Amino acid sequence: MRFFIFFCILIVLITACNKPQSFEYRGMQNLKIDSIGLVASKISLELVYFNPNNFSVDLRNVNCDIYINHNYMGRYVLDTLMHIAKRSEFIIPSSMNVDMKNVFKNALGTFLSREALVEIKGSTRVGKSGIFITVPFTYTAMEKFSMF
């Protein structure tokens, strides 16, 4: 009888602990050039995401590579702990160094078309109650850029 009760409790715990869903990318805002150089430049922006989970989660350690028109632009690392409410939008402040030789390769094409293919590939650690898992993510979309 004790084994049956233990088994029932175990089944309830396993089904109650849902794996977190990936965050939904909603866009970027407040793009700002902090410094410009011939070799590297520093940009900052805010990334807007939505948490589709029916529970709050903690976000820790975002690591990703940014590509524009299939050319590597730079690596973004966020090493902080953020609490994200259930079913809500949230903003991740971002800052990164950009490899300017790849920017110069794409500048004319991006300027003429006013849009570019943005690819973000990386992973993050999300969790609840101190238990974290690594969740890989990819994002690919055509983004419109306005120079003026």
Results as ranks from 00 to 15, higher is better:
Met1Glu: 04
Met1Pro: 12
Phe3Ser: 14
Ile5Pro: 00
Ile5Phe: 02
Phe6Pro: 00
Phe7Ala: 11
Cys8Tyr: 07
Val12Lys: 03
Val12Ala: 15
Ala16Asn: 09
Cys17Phe: 15
Cys17Glu: 09
Asn18Arg: 09
Phe23Arg: 00
Glu24Tyr: 00
Met28Tyr: 15
Gln29Tyr: 10
Asn30Trp: 00
Leu31Ser: 13
Lys32Glu: 15
Ile33Gln: 12
Val39Ser: 10
Ala40Asp: 04
Ala40Lys: 11
Ser41Ala: 14
Lys42Leu: 05
Ile43Tyr: 02
Ile43Leu: 11
Val48Leu: 12
Tyr49Arg: 07
Tyr49Leu: 12
Phe50Gly: 00
Pro52Arg: 03
Asn53Ala: 05
Asp58Glu: 12
Asp58Met: 06
Leu59Tyr: 01
Arg60Asp: 01
Asn63Ser: 14
Asp65Met: 13
Asp65Gln: 14
Tyr67Phe: 15
Ile68His: 02
Asn71Lys: 12
Asn71Cys: 08
Tyr72Lys: 11
Arg75Met: 11
Val77Leu: 10
Val77Ile: 15
Leu78His: 07
Thr80Arg: 07
Thr80Asn: 12
Leu81Gly: 01
Leu81Asn: 10
Leu81Phe: 07
Ile84Trp: 00
Ala85Lys: 07
Ala85Arg: 05
Arg87Met: 08
Glu89Asn: 14
Phe90Ser: 05
Pro93His: 07
Asp99Val: 11
Asp99Leu: 14
Lys101Phe: 03
Lys101Gly: 00
Asn102Leu: 08
Phe104Lys: 09
Lys105Met: 04
Lys105Ser: 06
Asn106Thr: 09
Phe111Trp: 12
Leu112Met: 14
Glu115Trp: 05
Ala116Met: 14
Leu117Gln: 10
Leu117Cys: 09
Leu117Met: 13
Ile120Pro: 02
Ile120Val: 15
Lys121Arg: 13
Thr124Glu: 01
Thr124Asn: 03
Thr124Met: 10
Arg125Ile: 00
Gly127Asp: 02
Gly127Tyr: 04
Ser129Tyr: 09
Ser129Leu: 13
Gly130Tyr: 01
Val135Lys: 01
Pro136Trp: 05
Thr140Gln: 06
Ala141Leu: 13
Phe145Tyr: 15
Phe148Val: 12
Phe148Leu: 13
